[in-house]
Simulated scan of single mutants.
Amino acid sequence: MTDLKNKVALVTGSARGIGKMIALRLASRGADIVVNYTRDKASGDATIREIEALGVRALGIQANVAEVSEVKGMFQQALTTFGKVDIVVVNAGVETIDIPLADVTEELYDRLYSINVKGAFFTMQQAAKTVSDHGRIIYIGSTSTDLPVPGISLYGSSKTAPQYLVRVLALELGSRGITVNGVIPTAIDGAGVFTDAGDNTHWRDFVKKSVPMGRMGTVEDVADVTEFFAGKLSSFVSGQNLCVTGGALA
């Protein structure tokens, strides 16, 4: 079992979905957790209670990753409370589907790119400045970057840039023993546009038919790989974007 005792992990977008499961998983391995959310304080508080029930400390920070000043403030607050940050999981993002490129509005473009690209970039920048030597930076991406599908041009393109940043940042931080990796899952049940069980039935069927294992991914699947990247077993693995697809090519 991964031992993260005496580690501090900051997980963006961790009030629900993939981020919440990752926060709970790292907490269950002994890490103190910084829970970040943008608006949903009730869900953030609920996640904090679940984390504290595991016997570790939790700090909730409301911050919009699309605002650089709020990203900086989030890291500073984490340092003030815990004294260090050892693990950063760059998870916060917005997902859209069923929107042809011709129908994408400037408003929607700005919203997705401000969170998925700008937010990820400046969170990774602050992580680079803040994370302890031999720490971990983990980006949660999407296989939509490798599988062109009608209706997801905006979302897929917005997830592409941070996957490139993973490789660059691994080169820049390697001398400090910091690893930088990406977890790149297929469509995940219980997250994003698939948060509600009955939504997007045709997309669910499409995913299941595309995956050799015959099912969608789960938040636990993503947490499994994130746990690996957060622990000692991955200490010589860096600059990788690992697909979590159940055998699908993308």
Rank of each mutant, 00 (worst) to 15 (best):
L79I: 13
V8L: 09
N64I: 07
N91C: 12
S69M: 06
R111H: 09
A170V: 03
A161M: 14
I184K: 03
N91G: 13
M213V: 15
D146R: 08
N64M: 05
G19D: 08
Y155D: 09
V85N: 03
G19M: 09
G192Q: 11
N181Y: 06
Q126T: 04
T201Q: 14
G83H: 12
V8F: 06
P212H: 07
G156P: 01
D3A: 12
A120K: 13
Y155H: 10
Q126C: 05
K159Q: 09
F122C: 04
E106M: 14
S158D: 04
A250G: 15
G177V: 04
G156D: 05
Y139R: 00
S210Q: 06
L79R: 12
A128Y: 02
L59C: 07
G19K: 06
V90F: 05
Q76D: 12
R167W: 09
A120P: 03
S210T: 07
A23K: 04
R176K: 15
A27H: 06
R16P: 00
A191Q: 13
E67R: 08
T38G: 08
V94T: 05
G141P: 09
S238M: 12
V88S: 08
V68G: 00
V211M: 07
N241W: 04
D196Y: 13
S234V: 10
T179Y: 03
G55V: 04
V225H: 00
L10G: 03
V90T: 08
A66M: 07
L249W: 01
M21R: 14
A223F: 02
K84G: 10
T38C: 14
K159C: 14
N116Q: 12
A27L: 03
K232W: 07
S235G: 06
D224A: 09
E95A: 15
Q76A: 14
G93A: 11
H202C: 04
N200M: 08
G177S: 08
G182E: 06
Q240R: 13
T47V: 00
V183M: 10
T80N: 13
A63R: 02
G198K: 07
K208M: 10
S28M: 05
N64Y: 02
S153H: 01
H202M: 08
A197Y: 03
D86L: 09
R57W: 00
P212C: 09
R16V: 02
I188D: 05
V117M: 03
V219P: 00
